[in-house]
């Protein structure tokens, strides 16, 4: 008995996240996705590391030339160097993805944990409002919001990015809110919350100190997968011509301008599409790995 206890004690007890990290470290899928994400983030942060070209340089004389030694990915219809633009396009896509995820998770999780904790009329109102937003199909809602916002006419890059982030966040927060709400409702019944309450802790302290650390895991998993999904959503909106647009360079913008020349210059569409898919794939894989590591039932 003492032997067994000694064996157990030798391994310092780890929390949920310590356990998850221990689990993650041994999974090749995790490392593959992390290195892919790091590469894309590096591309977004310092594009000059990968290319010295100018993404805004268009020469019609080299329009639609196929990939060659000096232009690895070829040129598009306007004579832009596709390789340079793909590298520079990473920034807009990543920024939109990260900002929308932060927006969705912060608003959704805050509202969700409050609704779950307080219940009553607050919960009822919030849940109905969330139902309304979920009832609007995503692409349709985003198109309506963005046309309303775009009607202002020409806008700078910051405003264009902010509009896309806003429309994604407005339509997606109910998902994060529902996840957080159901975990918060489950956590509220737990003994440690009752104990904290019996000891006279303020609601603010119960939520911040006791419930939040225990509720954050499902939202964390969701946010990893959502980051990938939002990058895809940005590309879809830009492809429709209402999301990002010139002067912003992004993969969706490139696909949008390449789609009309699919027959004569398929490379102009396939390279940005490939980078887009690989990035989304990396985030989805990371989310999968994190979920398996955080869910003790799946081990």
């Amino acid at each position: 008995m003492t032997d067994q206890m000694a064996v157990l004690a030798a391994d310092r007890p780890r929390g949920l996240f310590g356990d998850a990290w221990h689990e993650l470290r041994r999974r090749p899928l995790f490392w593959v996705s992390v290195s892919m994400i790091l590469l894309v983030v590096l591309m977004a942060a310092v594009p000059t590391l990968f290319t010295s070209g100018d993404p805004g340089l268009a020469q019609l004389s080299r329009s639609r030339q196929p990939p060659s030694a000096e232009a690895w990915f070829g040129y598009d219809n306007q004579g832009y160097d596709i390789y340079t633009r793909v590298i520079h396009g990473a920034r807009a896509s990543i920024v939109v993805g990260v900002l929308s995820t932060i927006g969705v998770v912060l608003t959704g999780a805050t509202i969700g944990i409050l609704a779950g904790f307080y219940g009553g009329w607050l919960d009822a109102v919030v849940s109905r409002v969330a139902d309304i937003f979920v009832g609007v199909p995503f692409v349709l809602g985003a198109i309506v919001i963005l046309t309303t916002l775009n009607a202002g006419g020409d806008a700078g890059p910051v405003r264009i990015v902010a509009q896309v982030v806003l429309s994604i966040a407005v339509l997606s927060w109910p998902v994060a809110m529902r996840i957080m709400r159901s975990t918060a409702i489950a956590a509220k019944q737990q003994d440690y919350v009752k104990a904290a309450r019996a000891l006279g802790a303020q609601p603010r302290r119960i939520i911040g100190k006791h419930m939040l650390p225990n509720c954050v895991a499902p939202v964390l998993v969701y946010s990893t997968i959502a980051l990938g999904a939002f990058i895809g959503a940005e590309a879809t909106l830009s492809y429709l011509g209402i999301g990002l647009r010139q002067p912003v360079v992004s993969w969706g913008v490139m696909i949008n301008s390449a789609k009309d020349y699919l027959r004569v210059a398929p490379h102009a569409l396939l390279f940005p599409a490939g980078f887009l898919t690989a990035t989304v794939l990396a985030f989805v894989m990371l989310g999968d790995a994190v979920r398996e590591a955080l869910d003790p039932k799946l081990r």
Binding site: A235, I255, L281
Partner: peptide, 22 residues
């Protein structure tokens, strides 16, 4: 399934159109 989840629908659409159609 991992791949299918990651590929945006319009990419699938264009690749299918390009390869099988054109």
């Amino acid at each position: 399934t991992l791949f299918l989840i990651s590929i945006p629908v319009f990419v699938t659409g264009y690749v299918v159109q390009l390869v099988f159609g054109l």
